[in-house]
Design a protein around this nucleic acid. Sequence first.
DNA 1: CGAATAATTGAAAGCATTCAAAGTGGGTGG
DNA 2: CCACCCACTTTGAATGCTTTCAATTATTCG
Lengths: 251, 251
Amino acid sequence: MSDLPSCIQNIGIERAPSTCGGANCQTYARRLSCIRRKLSPRQHLFLQGDAQNHVYLVKSGAMCLYKLLRNGRRQIIGFKFPGEFIALGHDTKYRFCAQAIAATELRSFQSHALHAAAVEDSRLMAKLYESVAGDLARAYDLALSVGQRDAEDSVATFLLTVEARAKAESVDGETLSLPMSRSDIADYLGLSLETVSRIFNGFKRRGFIELSGRRGVRLVDRGALRALSGTRADTRPPAVRDNRALRATVN
Amino acid sequence: MSDLPSCIQNIGIERAPSTCGGANCQTYARRLSCIRRKLSPRQHLFLQGDAQNHVYLVKSGAMCLYKLLRNGRRQIIGFKFPGEFIALGHDTKYRFCAQAIAATELRSFQSHALHAAAVEDSRLMAKLYESVAGDLARAYDLALSVGQRDAEDSVATFLLTVEARAKAESVDGETLSLPMSRSDIADYLGLSLETVSRIFNGFKRRGFIELSGRRGVRLVDRGALRALSGTRADTRPPAVRDNRALRATVN
DNA sequence: CGAATAATTGAAAGCATTCAAAGTGGGTGG
DNA sequence: CCACCCACTTTGAATGCTTTCAATTATTCG
């Protein structure tokens, strides 16, 4: 697998700073063949049901992944930013759709070639593993938001999370530019777009955030947002009032 | 990593039949050290926030994984059955709680030892990777259910999925024994336990299912349940009425 | 057989949705 | 460069699904 046609790509370089965490990003699988792709906003990379032959790496822009229901409703299951992989995990068909929410550049790899390369290079394997594990952690957080948070909690948590994840996207140190529309946020949080809009403006009226244009948001009062966010600081013991789940002896 | 104390365990043997899919389950990492654990119903294996030093493999019984919010609400993010791993993906702390919902036997591995062994044995690595990827796919399905399905759709889909996943758990070929309570189902689907109960009995009244005791469910009219389930048969093109998401040119 | 836990059922209340309409921003073409 | 237009966003009002509160019934285990 080390002598592929070669379009000499550095998988892993240009990894999103927030994810990279200051570690020196290595260059993996130098000779893995790939193809450049460019997508304009709203353009699809693939649909659920398509034959799953490729893995993609986002180089710039932003993507959203979503699943469709028969009734036409969609659940966005994640957003993808530069340095992140799409469609790791081998299946015969994609189980979700991938759509650009901004002008986006990607690299396309043949799934089997990438996974074969990963078997050769354990650093690449570690990277793919880490990527999937990260997706999993985010998916669990999403299920938590969608299932148990009320609308304000969801939106507050969303804003805090986006800020933490995409500090690179901020115009200056303060204002962040959301790449996704209200409708995208709604379909991500399991809310209606009207509800999202109402809550954004409710936060604005209460002085928690400032809005500028369609994309700009500035978090003014993070404390207030955190107070609305029911997120636990994963410390034990949880010590919840009457949480039946914890009555039993622990361990 | 091939000369550890050895408690000679076959990771992967006794894999759940439904997941194993008839393939001959290989024996991996024979000499990986592990510890046996037994949990009684409602007993916790770990809590979110605990130091994450171990990976667990379910041998018998059933576990549930859940996340807690400050307001005391919990979201079950998944159930674990024999042959499945818990807490793959290395982090310093567990991000969710793991609790037995029935008498359960597990094997406990040191995270670093297991991952080191996986680097040595690519079959084990493939197994872990597949496990995480499976968790990810199920997490996405959960987000979809919780975010976009109405209560009846959620419950119908849940029943169909449980049947498909845990055919081994069925008493005979027809009646399945749900290891989890109404409350567990509710916290999994993001509903109240009363709603789950109402819908179960609504299905019963309409002749879609039969109930026996607290655990027994028999799916009588799968067609009706599938009709309620908004799940798409992942075929393209989606051809949804006015799905804005698909207006853009595809690919 | 009895106590404790789980499940069911009913009624009232609430939060978010849906439907509807007006307003705003951003991009494009003249 | 500005006006115009389309799409996105905001806002209002009514509806409804699910939740919450409360009480009863059923099941399981000691």
